Computed example of a mutant assay.
Amino acid sequence: MADKAPDSFLYSRPEKVTDGVWSAIGATQPHTYENSGHNNNLSFVITDGGVLVVNAGDNYLLAKSLHDEIRELTDQPVKYVVLENGQGHAMLGMTYWQDQGVPVIAHVDAAREIEENGPALLAQLRQRSRDKAFRTRLGTPDKTFTDRLELTLGGETIEILNLGPAHSPGDIVVWLPERKVVISGDVAFHERLLPVFEDTDTAGWIETWDRFVDLGAEIIIPGHGGPVEGYEEVTRYTRDYLVYMREQVAKILDAGGDLNDAYQIDQSAYAHLDTFHELSRRNAALIFQEMEFEALGF
């Protein structure tokens, strides 16, 4: 994929989603040196009382590039940075923001993930990004929460919510009730195939989806891919994909099948999505293993 902002660490510059809400849409592909680790969405909300940023970015210089763009749009200072989870492209840039005096907020489970996996993620970044990892170091979130954290900026209420299990531990959404906008992080996917990890709770994610829909958002900024109006598209490529895969795996288990059968699940309805070839077989294997453990009562 061609870099849309070749003179910036950002893969693409921020685009206006609605009044006061912007997002720099990342590449819908794996991390590469060329995209500088900008393969997720870096979003922000501008209010009369300051700016809230969602995702610290994959590295120090990428975070600085985003901050430079924010300064072009507003004189309001960045007051908070929220991490969508504990993955590297969400959190490795946090020390840039902390060096500017901006507190970083994360769910308690995301903070635990950063503590446990941070050194390995930093090592991977340095190997992958080489010179682009300059000044990047590990940080620790300044504030953590469990279910809900409410902030007020410029008289506007901003809700940071953990709705339940989803893509990875500590996934949160940022809900702007007055604007009917939700920045969903990795709770919602489209344009690229969602990845299943070893610690992904696919059954729990399906249940969480109902609470996500109950927010009643009119605009959704997903973790990857451009903003959408309403839930139809992200439901098709998130909840419906998970339901389909679990149904297919259940049939295999009921028939006494094995992992090789899971690899043969027909996922062609999703083959047009980016990262399909990298993730489809892996997803099938991990969901099969997850449901094997469920059948054993784990």
Results as ranks from 00 to 15, higher is better:
His67Ala: 07
Phe212Gln: 10
Asn41Pro: 04
Val81Pro: 03
Leu193Ser: 06
Arg112Asp: 12
Leu125His: 06
Gly101Ile: 06
Arg211Ile: 10
Ser129Ala: 13
Glu233Phe: 04
Arg282Phe: 10
Trp175Leu: 00
Asp109Ala: 15
Tyr270Ser: 11
His167Glu: 10
Gly216Val: 05
Asp214His: 12
Leu73Ser: 00
Leu121Tyr: 11
Ala295Gln: 12
His38Trp: 09
Phe9Tyr: 15
Ala110Pro: 07
Asp261Tyr: 02
His67Trp: 08
Tyr80Thr: 07
Phe134Glu: 04
Ala285Cys: 09
Gln267Asp: 12
Asp266Glu: 07
Asp258Pro: 03
Val249Pro: 03
Glu178Ser: 13
Leu61Gln: 14
Ile287Asp: 03
Leu259Ile: 10
Arg112Leu: 12
His67Phe: 06
Gly225Asn: 01
Asp240Cys: 03
Asp171Trp: 00
Asn85Thr: 10
Gly257Trp: 01
Glu290Trp: 07
Gln98Asp: 06
Ala271Gln: 12
Pro30Asp: 14
Glu233Thr: 09
Glu294Trp: 10
Thr140Val: 06
Val45Trp: 07
Asn260Trp: 10
Thr95Phe: 01
Arg282Met: 14
Gln264Pro: 07
Val182Trp: 12
Val82Arg: 08
Arg179Ile: 06
Leu176Thr: 00
Tyr60Val: 04
Lys64Thr: 04
Asp147Ala: 05
Val45Cys: 04
Leu83Asp: 08
Pro14Met: 00
Asp7Arg: 14
Asp258Ser: 14
Asp258Leu: 07
Val104Pro: 05
Leu279Phe: 02
Leu125Gly: 05
Asp7Ala: 14
Pro14Cys: 02
Glu198Phe: 10
Arg148Asn: 14
Phe293Ile: 01
Glu233Trp: 02
Asp68Ala: 13
Gly86Cys: 13
Thr32Trp: 03
Ala269Glu: 15
Leu215Asp: 06
Ile158Lys: 00
Glu150Pro: 00
Val102Cys: 13
Gly155Val: 08
Val196Tyr: 05
Phe276Arg: 09
Pro103Thr: 08
Gln100Asp: 09
Leu161Glu: 06
Tyr33Gln: 08
Thr208Gln: 00
Leu279Asn: 04
Asp3Arg: 07
Phe145His: 00
Ala90Phe: 05
Asp240Trp: 01
Glu150Val: 10
His89Tyr: 10
Asp186Val: 01
Ala295Gly: 11
Pro103Met: 11
Asn59His: 14
Gly230His: 11
His107Gln: 14
His67Met: 02
Arg148Val: 08
Arg246Gln: 06
Tyr237Gly: 08
Arg211Thr: 14
Gly256Met: 11
Leu42Phe: 00
Asp201Cys: 02
Ala56Arg: 13
Pro30Tyr: 11
Pro14Asn: 04
Thr18Ser: 07
Leu62Thr: 09
Ile252Asn: 05
Gly256Ser: 11
Asp254Pro: 00
Ala295His: 10
Gly204Glu: 07
Pro195Phe: 08
Val108Cys: 02
Glu290Ala: 12
Leu62His: 06
Leu122Tyr: 05
Ile265Gln: 09
His277Met: 08
Pro177Phe: 06
Ser168His: 11
Ile287Ser: 03
Asn162Met: 02
Gly118Trp: 14
Leu138Phe: 09
